[in-house]
Each structure stands twice: as C-alpha cells, then as structure tokens.
Amino acid sequence: MTIVVDLTLPGGAFPLGTLLDDDPDAHVELERVVPVGDRLLPFFWVSDGSVEHIESMLAEQAEVGEYELLTTAGDQHLYEVRWNSDLDGIVPAIEDNEGAILNGRGVRGRWELRLRFPDHDRLKAFSERCRESGVRFEVNGVYNPHVPSAKDRLTPKQWETMSVAHELGYFEVPRRATLAELADHFGVSEQAVSQRIRRALNTLLSVHQFEPDTR
C-alpha cells in the first residue's frame, strides 16, 4: 500500500543545498510534483535572493548540469534544472526505491520534504540506503495512505478556537475581532485564548502542510 512520509534534513543533504548554506535568508520551494533523477527536469522557486547570487551558487554546485531562469515574479525566481548523471545521496535513494517527491521546501538551512513510496518495504530500503550514504534525516510523520488534515492535527478546542477566530476576522488585516472579544465568546481569559491560538499555530507550522502553491 502507498505510504507517504514527511522528512526534515540538513540543507547540504539535498541538491541546491548551497543556496541555503550560503544565504540564510534564501527560500527554495519545489514544485508540487517533482520528478527526480537525471531523466526529467525539476522546477523550483527561489525567493529572497538576487539572480546573480542564485546563479553563481548554481554554477558552483557539482550536482547541477544545466539550469535556466524561466520567469521572475517580484522577488521569486522560477528555475528549471537538469541534474548531472553522477548525482548521489538522497535523490538516487528516492529514485531507486520508486519514490516520488510530492513537495518540498528549503528554508533556514534545512529541507522539508514529503515523499511517497509504493509500500513500507520501499520506504525501509530508502532509509537503509540513506544511512549507508551518510544522509541523516528526521521523520515528522508517516501516513498510510492519506495525510491528516489540519483539523486532525489539532485538539477539538484548538480547532474550534481557530475556526471561530477566522470566522470573526481575528486574522484579517485590519482585525475585525479582538482577543478580548474571542475571550468573551468562549467565556475564558484572553491568555487562555492566546495560548490556544499559539499552540495551534505551532502544531500546524512545526509539521509543514505542503499546501498547493497559490502563485
């Protein structure tokens, strides 16, 4: 049965890692469905960096064979890249075990990836291949086969608080509802409401949801 896994790994453990190591403000966003290996051309967005700096980093990467700037939108640049045939590390570990990168991003010196494998045996083989190659990662979640929704990740009180806050306009700019009004609605203190919101946001952001890109 298909299995999905969320991973966090150091910036240098994945191609394009130099962009993250040399520029802590850089943000690399992979397209939602990204093929791996040297047969297909993956696409990725880079934010918060000049074209000159980005391309100088790409030129220094041994994994990158060719690259092309496709478009620019504000401070976001869309690139297409072809990997060299001797690419090693996590990418061939994914490809050799029939895996696919569903989505991913690189920010603050680390990568967050969502991978899909045909079954548990392939996922186990992928993990062993990474260990043998010295690739270390943290597993944030394993789903079989569906990724839990935002609601499933929160407690009932957290979900209710976030839903009501959204409906009343607490997250809008400018706000249509205050923390005091939310506290009155739930009959609790402002501190209690604030803690629920902070804990809910922490839960949602600590395990990246990889929502579809809305560019």
Rank of each mutant, 00 (worst) to 15 (best):
L102T: 07
G187M: 04
D88T: 01
S163I: 07
R175A: 13
G169H: 00
P212N: 00
D152H: 06
S194K: 07
L87N: 11
G109N: 05
Q76K: 08
R129W: 04
D86W: 11
P35Y: 13
D75L: 02
L205Q: 14
R136A: 06
V81Q: 09
L69A: 01
I197V: 12
D152L: 05
S50Y: 07
V51T: 12
E60Q: 15
I3T: 06
I94E: 02
V193R: 00
L204M: 13
L58I: 12
L179W: 01
H146I: 15
V164K: 08
S47V: 13
G169I: 07
S50P: 05
S50I: 05
Q76C: 09
V139L: 05
T72P: 02
D119F: 10
I90D: 01
R129V: 04
V33I: 15
G109T: 02
E190F: 05
V91F: 06
N97R: 14
L115Q: 03
W111C: 00
V81P: 06
E29C: 11
V91Q: 03
P156Q: 10
L201G: 15
E95R: 11
N202P: 07
T2Y: 14
V4W: 06
M162I: 10
V164R: 12
L16Q: 11
K157S: 12
A26G: 01
F210I: 14
R175Q: 15
E167A: 05
N202E: 15
L7F: 05
N140S: 08
D88F: 01
Q61P: 08
D184Q: 10
P15L: 01
G134M: 06
D86T: 15
R198M: 14
Y170Q: 15
P156N: 04
E66C: 09
R153K: 14
R114C: 07
R198D: 03
P145T: 12
F171E: 11
V164H: 14
V139E: 10
D119H: 08
E211Q: 11
R114L: 09
S50G: 03
R176K: 13
L179Q: 03
V107G: 00
V91M: 08
P15H: 02
T72R: 13
E80L: 15
Y143V: 04
F137V: 00
D96C: 13
E29W: 10
I90C: 07
T8C: 03
M57H: 02
L70V: 13
V64L: 09
A26N: 01
H53V: 12
R39L: 14
P118L: 00
D6W: 04
L20E: 00
S127V: 09
R39N: 08
S149P: 03
I3S: 03
R196P: 06
A177M: 14
E112W: 05
G12A: 08
L19M: 12
V33G: 13
V147H: 13
H120Y: 02
E172D: 13
V142E: 04
A73V: 15
D22A: 04
D25T: 03
D96E: 11
D21F: 00
E31A: 09
E60K: 11
Y170W: 08
V91S: 06
